[in-house]
Nucleic acid binder design. Sequence first.
DNA 1: ACGGCTGGTACA
DNA 2: TTGTACCAG
Length: 576
Amino acid sequence: MPVARPETSDARVIAHVDMDCFYVQVEQRKQPELRGLPTAVVQYNEWQGGALIAVSYEARSCGVKRSMRGEEAKAACPEIQLVQVPVARGKADLNTYRSAGSEVVGTWKFLFALIQDGDDFKESVRDWICRKDADRRDKLLGCGIIIVAELRKQVLKETEFSCSAGIAHNKARSDLMWDLCLFVTKVINTCFDVPCSTWLWNIARGISGEEVQGRLLPKSHGSGKTFPGPRALRSLSNVQHWLNQLSEELYERLSSDLEQNKRIASTLTLHASAFRSKDSDSQKKFPSKSCPLRYGVTKIQEDAFNLFQAALREYMGPFGTKPQGNKKETWRITGLSVSASKIVDIPSGTSSIMRYFQSQSTIPSSSESGCPQEHVAMTPSASESCSEQKSAETEAAMPDKDINITDTSADLDNSYGNMDIVPEKDASCQSNEAKEFPTQSGTQTKTIGRKINNSKEKNRGMPSIVDIFKNYNATPQSQQETREDSTVSLTSNRGNLSSSTNHSSEVNQEVEDRRETEWGYKVGEIDQSVFDELPYEIQREFRSFLRPNKRPNAGKSKGDGSASSSIAHYFSPLKR
DNA sequence: ACGGCTGGTACA
DNA sequence: TTGTACCAG
């Protein structure tokens, strides 16, 4: 983080949008009678009422906090409504919240529609962006404000979820930081090196050129569970049971990702936490282990268990293997998690997944360690790490032979669907595909990686929100004559979504009634409902752009109107 | 060794 | 590349 990037002269507009106590909102949408009540989402409830993981604003005002247990929350706020996270496979199941999150992201498509009509948008902002009577940077913020106001309204309309947002010229917050500024100035020379000092100095003043990294999808998936106190696992078979559960969930999510996003993960990692009951360094960390990820439930289960055993041996050192070594030097597992990472796009286009895999398939280098699947049956000592089995790397991006489909007309979904159903046998090393590519595994693996990366370039789906703002250029021109050039450009070479407008939501019906177009308006025609959402000082600013002689409506907004700067703005939760 | 589960970054 | 540590919500 301490990369002191200079702020560019080019003004940016950066918005931070944050879903309000999201899990609570998801539950309240499911049970509307909970709306407006102090509510919290709780994970498990057997021990002290479970752990709070989301707290509604009403409950927060009673002093309920996220780290509390359910019973604590009841004590602080007796009328609080506690909703439990679903449980699947004996563990918390967050999938409803994940898909609700995807819903939210899905609503952003209206922004891309906006981009498609970029010319209209340019036209509409041109008039005011060039005006002389306000600071250009503030005008840019104003533009961002409108976009974000629309976005929040759209999210609310399509999902019923409210969100809050902040807008600034950079990623660092730049207001309400005076104390920090003073503090930093005080300590800046005490204990920081030069790069760190300059970073601190700038951040405290809201100066940052750090860029926004755009991404719509997660970089990894994980499934984990803790086994606190007396629940700690003490037998291999119990560990295996839980690894099976976790692996199932992980595979389910990998499958969804493959189906919905056409992505595959290539690395499987096992994390565990443990302690040793008797003496010595019981602080010792349980090592993480990873290996190439092979698609298939039982494959992930097997690999995860093998990784665990390899890690366990390392953890226990000489004691673990020999029961007679030291009496009762035994382990307890207090946490397990399996995760999948290094997720890459696969080409969608016309080819099926299978065709892709087949074209990429390589021999799993029987030269060295034989069939890559052998480790499944290996004893712990013999399997000393899947990760050392280079041959298995090529397996990473390749589903089992037994799910390969010779019918090349098979489409993505069908071939993927078979993965789950077909019983997994050890794939032999003599598959036809394998023999076609007698290359060294390492080389081949790199090739796969490269191809996948290339495919990423041409195969991205929707543009990210960052792409939007990247192309959001306003050229600082000396007005008047150069008016043609002083436009806000909102274009994308990728956007290809249709711009349909949904007028059916009853929630915002009265809003819709007042509102005809998405983005065709001029500033003077800004949707009143959007306008009303703006902080008071921003409304005033806008009015000064538009009707310099008119006085703003007083008392419309909760703001006190005293703020003189619009450097950073914050929107309160949108009312339903 | 109850702040669970999930995801991210930075670093060696 | 793998493994570790730490952070945030």
